[in-house]
C-alpha cells in the first residue's frame, strides 16, 4: 500500500526515518512550515527555513525516492512577535507560488491571542489570492473553542471549507469540523495526542470521508511511521482497505491536490532514486550503499 503523510517535519528527522518511510510505502510527504522548538529572532531565519523546505529537504527526500512538498506560512506561536510577523508576511509572496508549495500552513491559533487572529486572517486572504489550500494547526489548550473560532475566522474571510484541512483533531472536535465541510486530519503520536487505537475507533464511527491521518513527526517524541502503522492497525481491526487508502493517501491527495502542485504522476512516473543525483562525495547515501536492499529488510505489510 502507498502512503502520503501530509504533515511531517522532516528537517528534524534523520535519514533512518527516510529509509524506513520509503520501505513502508510512503511515496510522498508534505512538510508544513512550523516553529522550530525555540523562537526565531530574525526574519532571515524564516527565509533560510523556507529555503530549506523548498530546497535541501526536497533534495534529501529525493535521495530516498520520496516526493517532498511543503506548505508555507507564519505559525501561530511566532505570530505573537509582531515585528517578526510583519517581516514574514513580506516574505510569503516570494514563496507561495513556487513549485511544490501545496498550501499556506500551518497557520491558526496557539494561545488564541488578537495577534494570532490578525495573521490568521491575513494569511487566509493570501491563500484566497493565490488560490491555495490552507493547512490549519489547532491549539493544544482549549482546543474545541480554538477550532470553532478558527473556522469562524476562515468563513468570515471567505474561504471554502473544502480547501481547508483542519489538523490535530480529536474526538471532541471531529464532528463539528466534518459537519461544516472541512477536511479533518488526525495526528498520530505514540504517547500524546492520539494513539493509533483511538484512531481506529474514530474511523469506525465516521468512516473515511474527508478524514486524513498524518504523523506530524517533528523534533519531539513522534513516529515517522505513524501513518503506515495506523494503517496496519486499521486493517487488523477490520476497517476496509478502501477506507484505509482514502485516509492515508487519497484524501490528502485530493485536498492538497487543489493547489495544482501535487499530482499522482509526480511519483508514479519517477523512476525511484535519480541516478544523476547520486555522486561521490556529495550524496547522502555514503559509501555506495544499496538503498533498495537496506529498505527491503524493513517492509511493513
Amino acid at each position: 500500500m502507498r502512503f502520503l503523510d501530509s504533515h511531517v517535519h522532516m528537517v528534524s528527522r534523520t535519514t533512518d526515518d527516510y529509509q524506513r518511510m520509503a520501505a513502508a510505502g510512503t511515496v510522498a510527504i508534505i512538510e508544513p512550515s512550523f516553529w522550530q522548538g525555540q523562537p526565531r529572532t530574525e526574519v532571515g531565519s524564516f527565509k533560510d527555513y523556507f529555503n530549506t523546505l523548498i530546497g535541501f529537504e526536497r533534495f534529501r527526500a529525493s535521495q530516498f525516492g520520496i516526493k517532498h512538498y511543503c506548505t508555507i506560512g507564519l505559525n501561530p506561536k511566532e505570530a505573537n512577535n509582531e515585528r517578526l510577523a510583519e517581516g514574514v508576511m513580506e516574505l510569503l509572496p516570494l514563496y507561495i507560488c513556487k513549485e511544490g508549495v501545496v498550501g499556506i500552513g500551518e497557520i491558526g491559533f496557539d494561545d488564541q491571542t488578537k495577534l494570532e487572529e490578525i495573521y490568521l486572517r491575513k494569511q487566509a486572504a493570501l491563500a484566497l489570492e493565490a488560490d491555495l489550500p490552507i493547512q490549519i494547526h489547532t491549539p493544544h489548550r482549549d482546543k474545541k473553542t480554538g477550532t470553532i473560532r478558527t473556522m469562524d475566522v476562515l468563513e468570515d474571510v471567505g474561504c471554502d471549507p473544502f480547501k481547508v484541512v483542519i489538523d490535530h483533531n480529536n474526538e471532541e472536535t471531529v464532528k463539528t469540523v466534518l459537519d461544516r465541510g472541512y477536511w479533518a486530519a488526525f495526528t498520530i503520536y505514540p504517547h500524546t495526542k492520539l494513539g493509533n487505537e483511538r484512531m481506529v475507533q474514530i474511523m469506525r464511527e465516521y468512516g473515511g470521508e474527508r478524514i486524513i491521518v498524518d504523523s506530524a513527526a517533528d523534533w519531539g517524541i513522534s513516529d515517522a511511521l505513524a501513518v503506515p502503522k495506523t494503517a496496519a492497525l486499521m486493517k487488523e481491526a477490520g476497517i476496509s482497505m478502501e477506507d484505509i487508502q482514502r485516509v492515508c493517501y487519497q484524501n490528502p491527495l485530493i485536498a492538497y491536490g487543489q493547489s495544482g502542485q501535487l499530482k499522482e504522476h509526480d511519483w508514479e512516473e519517477a523512476k525511484g532514486v535519480d541516478p544523476k543525483e547520486l555522486f561521490e562525495g556529495n550524496t547522502l547515501l555514503r559509501g555506495g550503499q544499496d538503498i533498495a536492499a537496506a529498505m527491503a529488510s524493513k517492509v511493513i505489510t
Binding site: 530546497g55 533534495f59 513556487k98 513549485e99
Partner: peptide, 12 residues
C-alpha cells in the same frame, strides 16, 4: 539577489 536568496532548485 532577492530571487536567488529565495529560489528553489529549479529556479536556481
Amino acid at each position: 539577489n532577492a530571487l536567488i536568496n529565495t529560489a528553489d532548485i529549479r529556479e536556481q
